[in-house]
Amino acid sequence: MNITTHINGKSYSHDVEPRLLLIHYLREVVGLTGPHIGCETSLCGACTVELNGKAVKSCTMFAVQADGANVVTIEGLASNGKLHAMQEAFWNEHGAQCGFCTPGMIMASKQIIDRNPNPTEEEIRHGLEGNICRCTGYQHIVNAVKAAAKAAGV
């Protein structure tokens, strides 16, 4: 089946099998290896991307479901060599340890701030429930989201 998607501002058309998962399409067909495959069972959130403005787990979605959609991956956040505010905050607050969960964490964190520019710590933790950090570096990740919210408010 032929699908057309708009990924990080560029259009792509490919003929794909309906059973191809979006994460495999992004990584293996389009060549965007930022979204990671962690658990493959929609629990860990490492594969999180934005689909029409909503954070989704791309391992639990078929590429054909994204036909016509706008997709943003971690590669699409920085513009003109300037990091997105959430990437900047993760860097400043040491929100990454091994880095495997980081692309998904940043996409989920971006969703939190997009929907609620001034979240409480509880709201931040609620918004990150779908993302697992096996280094258990959650405190710095929560700090990063707080810092990004604060920076946006300045």
Partner: peptide, 9 residues
Amino acid sequence: IGDVQVRNM
């Protein structure tokens, strides 16, 4: 229900 990504879909 689930988490934010699950609730979005």
